[in-house]
Design a protein around this nucleic acid. Sequence first.
DNA 1: TAGATTGTTAATCGATTAACAATC
DNA 2: TAGATTGTTAATCGATTAACAATC
Lengths: 214, 214
Amino acid sequence: MLQSVSRQTLQRLPDYLNCLKSLQQSGILTVSAKTVAETLGLGEIQVRKDLASVSTGGKPKIGYVTKDLIKDLEDYLGYHDSHDAVLVGAGKLGRALLSYEGFKEYGLNIVAAFDTKGYETENDDTSSLVLPISSLSDLCRRLQIRIGIITVPADCAQEICDTLVKSGVLAIWNFAPTHLHVPENILVKNENMASSLAVLSQHLSKKMLSEQSE
Amino acid sequence: MLQSVSRQTLQRLPDYLNCLKSLQQSGILTVSAKTVAETLGLGEIQVRKDLASVSTGGKPKIGYVTKDLIKDLEDYLGYHDSHDAVLVGAGKLGRALLSYEGFKEYGLNIVAAFDTKGYETENDDTSSLVLPISSLSDLCRRLQIRIGIITVPADCAQEICDTLVKSGVLAIWNFAPTHLHVPENILVKNENMASSLAVLSQHLSKKMLSEQSE
DNA sequence: TAGATTGTTAATCGATTAACAATC
DNA sequence: TAGATTGTTAATCGATTAACAATC
């Protein structure tokens, strides 16, 4: 049984996986924590500890067999057994996420999209159906959906969230710029654009200041 | 002069602002750290400390004047003086971000979009121009752009990143699922979907396990 | 063998939380 | 005044980093 990891470690795992895949493509069969650390600009010891918590394949002097470590990471991250999800809010962002092929690779399968009225939407390649929100609750229950993606405007996000929770959804990925209230056993992961911008913006302000003083 | 805040604090500030605006709309003129903490599900002391680092308007017994605290937060976050940015990669996600009106509010002004060939794109409301990447460097230099948003596929993200950095961009908002190498004075903020999914997915796995054992 | 690399145990660092004095 | 709420200083907690023994 593998250890449970901290949230920080968990969030770094996809980066390791990414890095390893790219190294694998370059034909590198065996890899050390040091190599991964240097490639990602992280601390060597941190990487070693992180990797040790998801794989037992590390061999002194050799490192990890790239292929095996990739497998271990994918297993740990659950990329091999996919989760069904619904997406609510088929605006620009919602449709962008819907058409993003990469989620499948991460074990996320968006089975249906919803919007206030429901309509047929034209994608470049496929035309997919957007269902009316009135049918959201029923579908979640029938298909036992556990993940809800919220891409509606802030002012109706809480209402959608409540509906999802009532319908058995256990984890919510929130793209609406608002805080959601949920029972404590439900997880909300905010994709907080405003927070990211705050970090970018502050970095610039500091830069400008230091340039002035030069 | 206001204190410099930790990254964690900085990332919470937009949430406070959001919360305060919504309280203001409910007609609440004065607000305590406790109220904000309860609304956002955070610790009271944490909120108090965070607020103290961006505002000096707190009065014992009374709390903060909502309007003033909003002003202080907006000032601190630089929402009043906007930053120009370019966006590279006008795929689904790129176009979704382009059409998102909310960025203006956060002081982010996307002045131009780029894609491999460049073309005219039809939005619902406005048709805007997507320029060819060949003109990216020149435009960044001329307009002294400091923020670059990368929404190209992973395999060309590093190349775009290099171009941006060479053209004077100081902060990069990276939506491509790959790690970017930059000089150490340049900031990269990753919008890491895979990390978010890892958190959601692990929460579900734990839930499933605990349900089984019940 | 020698030394590179692993995994683990201990030390450090930073953020959160608690305690408390100051004050409107 | 009394007590709610502030801001600050000290204690706790968790994550990162350092040190080191184990080993292929």
